[in-house]
Amino acid sequence: MEVRVQSEPFDMGAELTRFAAQTEGAGAIVSFSGITRDLASGDLTRMVIEHYPEMTEKALTKIAEEATARWSLTQCFILHRYGEMAPGDPIMMVATAARHRAEAFAAAEFLMDYLKSRAPFWKKEVTATGETWVAARDEDETALNRW
């Protein structure tokens, strides 16, 4: 299990290759990457992600431990950035490895659902005319009920 919080950009291909090398006994690897989405208007200058440094890693570790306890994962990885992102920049990724794909998929979805609303990150969208905090969506909260 690995959890990493960083401001620097990352190479998702390199991270996935590194992850795959640590998944002994696995027959399936699932990964998800979140990308800085431009606004529908195409006006996004940058996204700024604030976090709660003393809590972030603890919260992510708790989520990864929960996933590892629920599914028999051979490996689990969460990487999340904070600070400034340009449109198209990777924000975060999760990867799970298990003997079979169903567990790897379910665990990855679980990680994402919890990351959305239980990890202390807040996104702000910045355009040439102003900045707006991204509002949490009700669907993100209700998504937790299925677990």
């Binding site: 709660y52 924000i91 990351l115 959305k116 609303s117 239980r118 202390p120 990150f121 807040w122």
Partner: peptide, 12 residues
């Protein structure tokens, strides 16, 4: 020792 207040989180 520490209490933090914040809006609903928007990670991921």
């Amino acid at each position: 020792r520490e209490v933090a207040f914040f809006p609903p989180m928007t990670g991921g």
